[in-house]
Design a protein around this nucleic acid. Structure first.
Lengths: 145, 145
DNA sequence: GTAATTGCAAATCATTTGCTTCGTA
DNA sequence: TACGAAGCAAATGATTTGCAATTAC
């Protein structure tokens, strides 16, 4: 992802945050900047490391929660003990392939056949605001050596 | 699930455990018995509660890990902080529908279109022992009131 | 008899929360 | 200026681990 693109993504995200009623603080900007440039989902801890001591862990934590509520980011539950977060873009839905050995995460930009099911399940169950999370687990070539 | 069926499932599971080299202990039997009868996935804590003081939490924890390694049970990562476990049967793969409000879990015995993808991903990525986990999240009718 | 399991207690570690201070709108 | 947000410190709570005592094979 090039700089120009990353910049406009940051702008878009900040706009969405303002519309959601979030104040434009340094922590917000930095978190979004890091997440946008990240090659993959990040945990609270890895975000903290990437931010250095620019913002407090509790601040990051609370912002992540709000960002997820407002659908700016997506929260992922891998088999890891910690939650992973990644940007949520309207035109893109990633599923993931995770190695059960080393824990490495690859994103799969596959056309997920689940979207159809989603609508079906929604009408059968009466659940609203449906979304899904799909993960594939396996042993990567390295770990299989 | 009736008793006769539950009994034979327990037998089958115990057999698989023996083949895996696990000793037949009281803790093992009790954990399997509870999981087999459970209406849905259980956490370490709920398992502990169901077992009363029949076995120590650490014992349950270590057994769950081994049972998962030997594919007797399946571990699920919901957005809950805790891991959920459920029996794994050869002829059955459940996906789940979870309410983001109250956390209730329903299992979906749908024919999951992901199985096909799984093989495809396996050959593209070189990953082996692939399996997947699919969850739908949404707001249940109650919580939407 | 012996190596695998337990039980109990203590250590981790990722959150989560309370509260005071700061800064944006 | 008022109220949401940040920073700091302390509380949770679900795992994880160490080690001595048991127990299945």
């Amino acid at each position: 992802m090039e700089n120009a693109s990353a910049d406009s993504l940051l702008q878009d995200s900040l706009d969405r945050c303002r519309n959601a009623g979030l104040r434009r603080t340094k922590a917000l900007e930095e978190i979004l900047r890091v997440l946008i440039q990240a090659p993959g989902p990040m945990t609270l801890t890895s975000l903290g490391a990437a931010l250095g001591s620019q913002c407090d862990k509790a601040t990051v934590y609370r912002l992540l929660i709000r960002l997820e509520e407002h659908a700016v980011i997506r929260r992922l539950g891998f088999h890891d003990r910690s939650a992973h977060y990644t940007m949520r873009y309207a035109d893109r839905h990633d599923d993931y392939l995770i190695c059960t050995g080393c824990g490495s995460v690859e994103s799969l930009d596959i056309h997920c056949p689940v979207e159809v099911l989603e609508r079906e399940i929604s009408s059968n169950s009466g659940y609203t605001k449906l979304y899904h999370e799909l993960q594939f687990y396996g042993v990567c070539p390295e770990c299989a050596r």
